[in-house]
């Protein structure tokens, strides 16, 4: 039997499908179908019979009702994690951009400094960091306190300064908590720093040359060239940081979900309801971020 040979485009399209085939299968079996199932679980009560399998029984909106109306901690934890995100994401973004700008310059000993600055990428994802930062002496020494005679005295220089300057309590609390968590912020900006570094290197050097000949200073170059050219990179980093902050396993709400899951199988339905509520909020925030960046890019172009 003789077949009509396929066109080049059609053949290329079919070859591509073979390359991507693993992802199609994985997406269905390990992503989409568990996702659909977890929606069903959030509307059911789950029971397990070890010999045959698990059974889902529809209970309507009961799990969501429990989450919002009965559980004492859920709504507070939810709001807390949002408040935390609202100040952590900008701080991490600015810090990582700053680190990337330093690393992107040429200076002596740059190889060593790079090796040191990339260390967070190796540890930040692990439990090791929380062990070290959870160690009271280590974290006090880092946030500027002093260790004397085995007793820890928290440094309050910053606090005194702000009190004297006449700021109100709320601002002082925010400022001191930023200073105290600077350590974990710097350590969590590793991946973002790498992404920014790659973004910085993709900016054509001719732009800087042209503007310098016109008499622009480095400061002007930063605001007029570097920052606008980094807009897509900033968006990628923002999305990454938001997702990362939310799924951090030390997060109070993540901890609540994990505890619920590991305590009792029958609580899996409720845990799914928690997770979905949480995810929908994250989704809304991400959509807002995408929307804002689309507006900005429309405005500038």
């Amino acid at each position: 039997m003789k077949r009509k040979p396929m066109s080049l485009a059609a053949r290329s399209a079919w070859t591509a499908q073979i390359f991507i085939l693993p992802f199609y299968l994985g997406f269905w079996f390990f992503f989409l179908s568990p996702l659909i199932q977890s929606v069903r679980m959030s509307f059911s009560s789950v029971s397990v019979d070890t010999s045959t399998g698990y059974v889902l029984q529809n209970v309507g909106f009961d799990n969501y009702k429990t989450a919002f109306l009965e559980d004492a901690n859920f709504t507070t934890n939810l709001l807390n994690s949002f408040a935390k995100m609202a100040w952590q994401v900008p701080v991490i973004l600015v810090l990582s951009l700053f680190l990337a700008l330093i690393l992107n310059q040429k200076f002596h000993g740059r190889v060593f400094v790079r090796a040191v600055f990339f260390l967070p990428v190796i540890f930040a994802s692990g439990i090791a960091l929380s062990m070290i930062s959870g160690d009271s002496i280590a974290s006090t020494a880092l946030s500027g306190g002093t260790v004397s005679g085995g007793e820890i005295t928290q440094s309050s220089a910053l606090k005194d300064m702000l009190v004297n300057a006449g700021f109100n309590d709320k601002i002082i609390n925010i400022a001191t908590s930023i200073a105290n968590s600077l350590f974990s912020m710097v350590w969590r900006s590793g991946i973002q720093m790498i992404i920014f570094l790659a973004g910085l290197q993709s900016i054509p050097p001719t732009l800087y040359e042209a503007s310098s000949i016109e008499g622009a200073t480095s400061w002007e170059n930063f605001w007029k060239i570097t920052l606008p050219m980094l807009a897509p990179t900033i968006m990628i980093n923002m999305v990454y940081t938001i997702v990362d902050t939310f799924t951090d396993s030390s997060n109070s709400i993540m901890r609540q979900i994990t505890n619920l899951m590991t305590s009792q199988i029958s609580k899996l339905g409720l845990a799914s309801a928690f997770a979905w509520t949480y995810f929908l909020f994250i989704g809304l925030i991400l959509l807002a971020v995408f929307g804002i960046f689309r507006l900005i890019s429309k405005h500038t172009s």
């Binding site: 568990p34 199932q37 977890s38 679980m41 789950v46 899951m261 995810f279």
Partner: peptide, 12 residues
């Protein structure tokens, strides 16, 4: 999509 949304059904 965060892991915790699908991890429960993945567990089962």
């Amino acid at each position: 999509v965060p892991t915790q949304t699908i991890i429960m059904s993945q567990y089962l």
